[in-house]
């Protein structure tokens, strides 16, 4: 499978938010404003690529040779938590304007299950190194597409009046379901 195909497949046909329904909490909570959604999406993409790559090395060159594959969960979680903190410090120091866009989302990402899920899928699907990079980038991109699209829809939602008790989060979940159905249309596009 070529790398471009992996990116497209993970971003669109197997969109991590809309086909696996992962990372739902920030997906609902941060999609209130377009700027915030784009910031969160960008932060997830950056973090997912870095953590998955690091986890790839940790898995291939430490865990597999020592036959400690069962430690993958613990090691992945530790490395995600650590890398997110390091990124926060670095971004704050050297890119203050970038920090203002996704600074507060960085700590939230530690508990975003997209990040862990991509690392675990990477193991399950036995990607090569470049395959891992392409897959993680595509997944982050897909999640970013989904959350910004949702933020755009919710902007319009502000001017409509859904059923009273469906409220804010309720109608957003219904919308996410409809978006997932729409994304189902891409299935089969890439064999």
């Amino acid at each position: 499978m070529s790398l471009a195909l992996i990116v497209l497949a993970s971003a669109i046909t197997n969109n991590i938010a809309l086909t696996y329904f992962l990372g739902m909490c920030p997906f609902i909570a941060i999609s209130k404003s377009l700027r915030g959604a784009a910031g969160m999406g960008l932060a997830v993409t950056v973090v997912v690529v870095i953590t998955t790559t690091v986890n790839y090395f940790a898995y291939r060159f430490v865990l597999v040779p020592l036959r400690l594959e069962f430690l993958a969960f613990v090691v992945f979680i530790m490395s995600i938590a650590g890398i997110v903190q390091m990124l926060e410090i670095l971004v704050e120091r050297y890119f203050p304007s970038l920090y203002s866009i996704f600074g507060i989302f960085l700590p939230l990402i530690t508990v975003n299950c997209v990040i862990l899920a991509v690392s675990l899928f990477m193991v399950l699907r036995e990607y090569t190194f470049w395959g891992t990079v392409a897959y993680s980038f595509g997944s982050g991109l897909g999640w970013m597409i989904a959350i910004t699209a949702m933020a755009g829809l919710r902007k319009h939602l502000a001017f409509s009046s859904p059923v009273k008790n469906l409220g804010d989060a309720g109608i957003t979940i219904v919308l996410a379901g409809l978006m997932a159905l729409a994304f189902l249309g891409f299935q089969g596009m890439l064999a």
Binding site: M78, S79, I83, I89
Partner: peptide
């Protein structure tokens, strides 16, 4: 497993502390 797990934790912790003292 214990050595590996703790080793990784210590490396991550040390990196964070280094960044905190020199970058932040």
């Amino acid at each position: 497993p214990l050595v590996v797990m703790n080793g990784i934790a210590v490396i991550i912790f040390a990196l964070i502390m280094l960044l905190k003292t020199f970058v932040a």
